[in-house]
Computed example of a mutant assay.
Amino acid sequence: MRESEYYSYFVGELPKGCQLCVKGAKLVLFTTGICPRDCFYCPLSPWRREDVIYANERPVKDELDILEEAKIQEALGAGVTGGDPLARLERTVRYIQLLKENFGENFHIHLYTTGALATREALEKLYDAGLDEIRFHPDIFSPNSKLFQKEIENIKNAKDFDWDFGGEVPVIPGGEERIRWYAEFLDNLGAKFLNLNELEFSETNLRALIDKGFKPVSDESSAIKGSLDLGLELLRWGEESTSLSYHLCTAKLKDAVQLRNRLKRMAKNVAKPYHEITEDGTLRFGIAEYEDLEELYSLLVEEASVPKEWLYINEKKKRIEMPEEVAIELADAVEGDVKFYIIEEYPTWDRIEVGRIPLP
């Protein structure tokens, strides 16, 4: 077992999908929120638990949205997820074909599925479309359910195709016997890997996890106490007991590495001249807020002599954007009800604001 440079742990070789993901080079293609299961630990937001489509944070209205997002990210591949992407099989197959047609055969695509809908016919369509890697997440923690039995039977079909296949499940404290069972099942089937994810609290699974007695590692972390330690124990066991590769994906990897690297890839392609790209990949700039933006714009250009190319009227957010240094200077010079701030935003489609400093 080794520790990676990405705050994760692994045995053997990282799956190709993970190798690109940690670099922030994987487009997250969410093809539907529909899923045949209702796992108590599911972290999906309420608005994604419907038949919706997203490319990263961008709502997809047509196929061009997917291509545009992949180009902005300079993506080298895509992770197809949901819900269960097989709940909208034809849509998912089309999107895989679309990405391969536009970015080439080397554009690596992996997909997550419960296995409940992974019939031989469905897998054949995915394979023919160009899917490179498939990861199965059956409900191993409900072994007596009919749906689980169906999932396991369907997973057996994956060995008949020339792709990388394996499993991916959360590390739930107390669930070590079931995870070991699944690892042995995959190993006997000829699978390549088992990915283990450190369990985390989210807005939607918080109550269910607390009701089951789970606690966070600390007040500053969303990670579940005991999940990481169990994951490390399972990797040590797996290295000795199976021939699978393992990757223990930590909460820190997702927050401090994968997201940060993706933001950096995107920032350089969306940044305007007045944006400063920070070390974390966020966009930093100044803004001015005022009731009449046209009036303010004229004042800044004609009376404050600010070059027009330094100013951008953002009607949607009701503000004028500008370089940070300009905002600092204007905050000292402009009187009245104009308010100036230094802003930090993600370079994503939704432009989430992560920092706001008022200027005196």
Rank of each mutant, 00 (worst) to 15 (best):
P143C: 01
E168L: 10
R120T: 06
D139S: 13
E153F: 02
L99P: 07
L147A: 12
G115Q: 08
N106S: 13
F103A: 07
F107I: 10
W163K: 04
E101W: 03
I155Q: 01
G130I: 08
S145E: 08
E151N: 11
H108P: 11
S145L: 14
F148E: 00
E153Y: 02
Y95K: 04
L117Q: 02
P143G: 09
S145H: 09
F141D: 05
Q149L: 13
H108N: 00
E121D: 15
F161Y: 13
A122Q: 03
S145A: 13
N154D: 02
Y95R: 13
N102Y: 12
T113K: 00
Y95G: 00
R120H: 14
D139G: 04
D162G: 02
T119K: 13
L99I: 12
E124Q: 14
E151M: 13
T113L: 02
I96E: 05
H108D: 01
A118W: 11
T113F: 02
I134D: 09
D162P: 03
F141R: 01
L123F: 09
F103T: 00
L98W: 09
Y112L: 12
V93M: 08
Y112W: 13
K156R: 15
S145C: 06
R94D: 11
D164I: 14
L99M: 12
K159I: 14
K125T: 09
Y112T: 13
L117D: 03
S142T: 15
G104I: 05
A129F: 03
D164W: 00
D164Y: 10
L123E: 05
L126C: 06
L98M: 03
I109V: 15
F103V: 04
T113A: 04
A158P: 12
Y95E: 13
T114H: 09
K146L: 13
H108L: 09
Y127R: 06
N102F: 10
D139C: 08
N144D: 15
V93E: 06
L99N: 06
L126P: 07
D128C: 11
H110T: 10
I96S: 04
G115F: 08
A116I: 13
F136W: 08
K125Q: 14
Y112D: 10
Y127D: 06
L126A: 06
A122R: 10
R94V: 01
D139K: 07
I155H: 05
E168Q: 15
V93P: 10
P143M: 02
I109K: 04
A118D: 07
L131P: 08
F103W: 03
D128M: 10
N144R: 14
F165M: 00
N157V: 10
K146C: 01
F165I: 06
G130E: 00
H108T: 07
G104S: 09
E168C: 06
L126S: 08
E168P: 14
I109L: 04
K146H: 07
H137F: 11
P138V: 02
Y95C: 05
P138H: 02
Q97K: 15
V93Q: 09
D160G: 04
H108E: 01
E121S: 11
R94L: 11
P143V: 02
D162E: 15
P170H: 06
L131K: 10
K156Q: 14
K156D: 03
E124T: 04
K100M: 09
D139I: 12
N154R: 11
I109D: 00
